[in-house]
Design a protein around this nucleic acid. Structure first.
Lengths: 227, 227
DNA sequence: GAAATGAATATTGAATTCATAATATTTTTT
DNA sequence: AAAAAATATTATGAATTCAATATTCATTTC
């Protein structure tokens, strides 16, 4: 028996548009034609416009009155600000996780960590990133704070487009792995303060931003590199 | 010459509904009748429904497919989680503010602080809260991080309804004022780490939640006390 | 030839209409 | 009279229509 259809059309549409933006098929700053998207998705303008309003309040799209919608342009400052925020949220997630996490969850994270280390040793960047992200998400989940998770994933979504436009130098990479070693140790000790501290200072995110910042001017629009 | 009208109807409507929720005129869990609100505002269903979608993604309203909208119910856990988050964001705002704040801005905050002290000495609760909030907002603004400000004000909006349902005991109040003294000193010294720390631990918010939590069960719905 | 004006076109904003799902009411049955 | 079924009513979801606003393009003026 297939899932009962109980999702509204505007939610589907929002998902699809979100994908298009993430994939870069709709480029930053590009005008979003209601007509074109309606035809593409085979829906009327009503649910599409509702979806655009949702995406706007998620910060993925900007709506100009009487002038339609554009894909939100990312500036270096915005990305930098967003990562500062995400770092603070991760810090909080670490503190909370240490209070709430179960032994089983810790073990699961340790296993992910081991797996990540293997990818690091073999210098497999993409699998490394995938597991890396899973670790951070696991800690976030272990925090037990759903509002935090919701906020974090929104922020993460906003900057997803620039995520893969980075080159990881070897020394940065080594540092990141070291940070992770420390994280695991703090987590095992359930030392919330320390884990929070490590996560806040964990350079990974900030570095990639810095590397981008080197490429273009400060309040310049950010060009998105597709994978 | 008055400002040319360039705001969309759905934005106006969203503002008005937000007010109704904040004021408690629309109670938590209450069903929102599209028809009733349309008549009240004199608009058609289209802009109203768009507004509801925005409010839903702000977390003020929940939409049940085919079953209309309800004012989001707050549970003690949600409020607790939200305050934890806000504390972390305030901490970040303190750290960033110390990096960016101008001498003039510091002076303005000091003046607010003096004013707040006067209200404290005279035990004028509401004016005290008003200035208190202005101080926190000023620090937030001085952080220069607009994404942070946006997130914070969203979170703050969500829990505004329970804001006034607190009783401030004298010892808590004294502690809060002491925290503020320390904040000012850290700010003057531009000691970001310390200011961040103080703000994160600043009990004000957490206390009021704790006091509420004492009143009702943990995942119970929160009853809102109107002023 | 460039800038400015005005008509034509296209696009968005909002109201209305139509279809469908949920709720309330009445009727039937036991 | 209570429970169940059938019907009617209402409310929501989505498409369509109408109106207002921008944009484009041709024409005029300097």
């Amino acid at each position: 028996m297939s899932k009962i259809q109980n999702r509204s059309l505007y939610l589907e549409v929002a998902d699809r548009v979100r994908e298009l933006i993430e994939q870069g098929e709709l480029a930053p700053g590009e005008r979003i034609s209601e007509k074109a998207l309606c035809e593409r998705f085979g829906v009327s303008r009503t649910p599409l416009r509702e979806a655009l309003k949702v995406l706007a309040s998620e910060g993925l799209v900007e709506l100009l009155t009487n002038r339609g919608a554009r894909v939100m342009r990312l500036t270096v400052k915005m990305v930098k600000d967003t990562y500062d925020l995400m770092a603070a949220l991760e810090g909080l997630s670490g503190e909370l996780a240490c209070q709430n996490i179960s032994d089983e969850e810790i073990e699961a994270i340790c296993r992910l960590h081991e797996e990540m280390l293997r990818h690091y040793q073999e210098r497999n960047l993409m699998p490394y990133f995938r597991i890396n992200q899973q670790i951070h998400e696991s800690i976030l989940a272990a925090s037990g704070n759903e509002v935090l998770q919701e906020m974090y994933s929104n922020l993460s979504q906003r900057v997803k487009r620039v995520r893969y436009s980075k080159k990881m130098t070897d020394s940065f990479w080594r540092q990141a792995v070291q940070d992770h070693e420390n994280m695991i140790s703090a987590l095992k000790a359930r030392d919330g303060k320390r884990l929070g501290q490590i996560l806040r200072e964990h350079l990974c995110n900030k570095l990639e931003v810095a590397s981008i910042a080197g490429m273009i001017e400060d309040d310049e629009e950010l060009s998105v590199v597709n994978s």
